[in-house]
Nucleic acid binder design. Structure first.
Lengths: 200, 200
DNA sequence: TTCAATAATGAACATCATGTCCTATAATGA
DNA sequence: TCATTATAGGACATGATGTTCATTATTGAA
C-alpha cells in the first residue's frame, strides 16, 4: 500500500480503529482485546487492519501521540498561568491528576490494577510487605492515619522499583551501594537535596 | 486430582515446571513463553500441567512464594546486623539491590524494559519528557551530570505513576488537589517530612 | 466528468496455542 | 503386595493470528 496519509479512506479507517480500541479498552481492558474484536467493532476488514498496523500494540502506540500532544499543551498552559516560580515546580502534576479524574475510566483501564504485569503485581505485593515492616521498625513516623501510611508505602515501593529498573536497564555501571545511596537520599529527602547525591 | 502435596511425583513435576519457567524466562522473557514451551522444556504431559496449574500466570505466582521467603529472611538479617538505628532505615534496599545484581539476568527479564506493559512504557516515555522539561524550567538543580538528572527524572516519573495508580484504584476519595499536594511533598522533600501531608 | 490509482472488502487458508477429555501406564505409600 | 493416584500422550473443539488474492468501491487529479 502506498500510504498517502491524506487519503480520506485511510484517515477514516484509522479513526475507526482508534475509536474501536478505546471503546474496547473501556469495556474489557487492553489485555483482553483481540484484533478480531477491534475489526468487528470498527467494521473494518481484516486485511485492511494489517495494511495499517502490524498488530494491537502498533495501534495502541500510535494512539499515544494524541495523548502526548494533549499533555504537552496542558503543561504549556500550566507553566504560563501562575506567577510564583517556586510553587509551579512540577506544575504538570495537578493538571494530569485532574485529567485522570476526568477520564477516570480510561486511566483505570490503562494504569490501574489491570495495567501492570503479573510479575509487577506480585513484586509490588512482596515489596509492600517489606517496606511496611521496615518503615514501622525504623522510622518513627507516628501517623495514626492508616491511609497516609499506605500512600507512603506505595511511594517507597514505586520509587524503589523505578530505580531498580533504571539501574538494571543501564548495565548497572554504578555499584549497589551507590544506587542504594541515591535511592535512600531521594526517598528520605526528595529531589531538593539531590545535589548531595554521590558523584558518578 | 487429590493433591497430596507430599507425593514425590507431584513435587518432582512441580519442580520441573518451575525450573523450566525460569530457564525460559531467561531465554525469551516472560511474555513470549507459551505453555507448550514450558511442558516441552520440563518434559511433562499437557494434561499433567493443567492438573497442577490453571495456566502460565498461576505457575509464576506460585514461584513468587519462594522469592518472598528469601527476601523476608534477608530483611530479617539486615535489620539485626547493624546497630545504628537511623542508618538502617530502609535497610532492605541495599540487600535487594545486591540480590538483583547477583541474579541480574532474571531480574532484567522480569522488571527490566521488557517487564512493563506497552501502555506503561509509552506512558513513561511521555511523562519523562514532561518531567524533564518541567524540572529544567522550574527547579534550579544545576547538575552538570546528565546521568544524575536522568535518575531524578525517572524517580519523579515512577513516583507519579505510582501515586496516580494508587489514587485511581482507591476510588479517588481524595481530590486531585490533595493527591497532588501529597505527591509534591513526597517528591520534593521525601518521607521524613510526611507529617506535613494534608489530613484525610 | 472521466479515469487511472489505490484503498477496502471478505473469504480462504495455514499455523499455532489453548483447555478438556480420555484411556492406558507407571509410580507411590501403606 | 496392592489399592491409590499421578502421569503420559493422543485426540479434539475452539479461537486467534497473519497472509494472500480477486473483486469492488472510493478517491483525487486531469
Amino acid at each position: 500500500m502506498k500510504k498517502d496519509l491524506t487519503d480520506r479512506r485511510m484517515l477514516r479507517t484509522r479513526a475507526l480503529l482508534h475509536e474501536a480500541l478505546i471503546s474496547l479498552i473501556l469495556k474489557k481492558g487492553y489485555d483482553g482485546i483481540t484484533i478480531q474484536d477491534i475489526i468487528d467493532k470498527a467494521n473494518v476488514g481484516r486485511s485492511t487492519f494489517y495494511a495499517h498496523y502490524t498488530g494491537k500494540e502498533d495501534l495502541l502506540r500510535s494512539g499515544f501521540t494524541h495523548l502526548r500532544e494533549l499533555l504537552l499543551e496542558q503543561q504549556k498552559q500550566a507553566l504560563a498561568k501562575r506567577g510564583d516560580p517556586k510553587a509551579r515546580s512540577l506544575g504538570f502534576s495537578l493538571a494530569m491528576f485532574e485529567h485522570a479524574l476526568e477520564h477516570r475510566e480510561l486511566y483505570m483501564a490503562l494504569v490501574g490494577q489491570r495495567g501492570g504485569t503479573v510479575v509487577m503485581q506480585q513484586l509490588r505485593k512482596v515489596l509492600a510487605e517489606l517496606v511496611h515492616d521496615d518503615i514501622a521498625a525504623t522510622l518513627k513516623i507516628t501517623t495514626p492515619d492508616a491511609k497516609k501510611r499506605e500512600v507512603i508505602v506505595e511511594f517507597v515501593v514505586g520509587a524503589f522499583i523505578t530505580l531498580l529498573t533504571w539501574w538494571l536497564d543501564h548495565k548497572a555501571k554504578i555499584s549497589p551501594a551507590e544506587i542504594d545511596s541515591i535511592f535512600r537520599e531521594l526517598v528520605l529527602h526528595g529531589i531538593t537535596r539531590s545535589q548531595d547525591l554521590p558523584q558518578k
